[in-house]
């Protein structure tokens, strides 16, 4: 069943995506308000950031423009989870109501089918916001623009996005075991707000926890160091792509474990 190949899944994703977009278009007011809401959350994050810097000129040796770069980096890195994995938010309702069973009866990968059902268009606003911030900070810091740097930026943005995807998979899958676990997702989603600060602020045991167990440090800090301090890149930055893949794989396994558990309790 797994050996369908990438081409099959890509074709199917496209078909499901078109259906989803069509159904979204029928609720035009909802689409406009949701987009507006997304812009509002980004603006509010930005306002918080500005207020902070209005009072404190630097944080842990990071000045305004470097922090801005980190901020933009985190926004772009958080776009894939917003756009492609948004259906995770519906998981707990589906599991509770029993509607989830429909995904188990299709001859395709359950995780793939469930996740592909929703594509969140409003995440694109965040992407635009993030790119704008990165470009502005980039110019102000004066990082040279070479093809190699751009390539590095793209690779490490992709890397960074893996971690939030994995975290949200883990958080969503808790609902297979715990009733009323919706708050786990909410708090995980709030953790991401801390990705925009340099993780050098953590100390001791929490440095380890927030680097490896709840990898907030990898959502923006370590990957962005490759661009910001090209002469002095820590080892963790270089291994982050590998670690990201492992983390996503583990979250996928955890999610699928939940599905199997669901089969047993099935309604």
């Amino acid at each position: 069943m797994r050996k369908r190949g990438l081409k099959f899944y890509a074709g199917m994703y496209r078909k499901i995506l078109v259906q989803d977009l069509k159904s979204k278009m029928s609720y035009r007011a909802d689409f406009i308000i949701s987009t507006f809401g997304m812009i509002m959350t980004n603006l509010s994050g930005f306002v918080t950031f500005m207020i902070l810097f209005h009072n404190f000129p630097e944080i842990n040796g990071w000045d305004y423009h470097h922090m801005l770069f980190l901020y933009g980096f985190s926004l772009v890195a958080l776009t894939p989870v917003q756009c492609f994995f948004d259906n995770n938010w519906n998981l707990r309702f589906m599991v509770q109501s029993g509607d989830f069973i429909k995904y188990c009866f299709r001859p395709v990968n359950v995780f793939f089918y469930f996740i592909s059902e929703v594509f969140d268009v409003k995440g694109l606003g965040q992407l635009a916001f993030g790119i704008g911030t990165i470009v502005y900070a980039w110019i102000k810091i004066g990082i040279p623009v070479t093809p190699l740097v751009i390539l590095k930026l793209l690779v490490f943005l992709l890397t960074a996005s893996l971690f939030m995807i994995a975290l949200m998979n883990f958080a969503a899958a808790t609902c297979f075991w715990i009733k009323g676990s919706g708050y786990v997702m909410v708090i995980m989603f709030r953790f991401k707000d801390f990705a925009k600060y340099p993780s050098s602020i953590f100390e001791g045991i929490f440095k380890i926890i927030f680097t490896f167990i709840i990898p907030i440090a990898f959502i923006a800090y370590y990957p962005s160091l490759v661009i910001l301090t090209p002469d002095n890149v820590p080892l963790l930055s270089w291994i982050s792509p590998l670690y990201g893949l492992v983390f996503v794989y583990l979250s996928y396994k955890f999610w699928m474990l939940g599905v199997r558990k669901y089969d047993f309790t099935g309604s």
Binding site: Y27, A29, D30, I33, T35, G37, T41, V47, T48, L52
Partner: peptide
């Protein structure tokens, strides 16, 4: 409006920011 998520997020963002809960 038939929009739950959008309305809710706008409300939550405004309340959290202007009530002093985030800063």
């Amino acid at each position: 409006t038939e929009s739950t998520w959008g309305i809710n997020i706008v409300k939550e963002t405004i309340v959290l920011l202007l009530s002093g809960a985030s800063i």
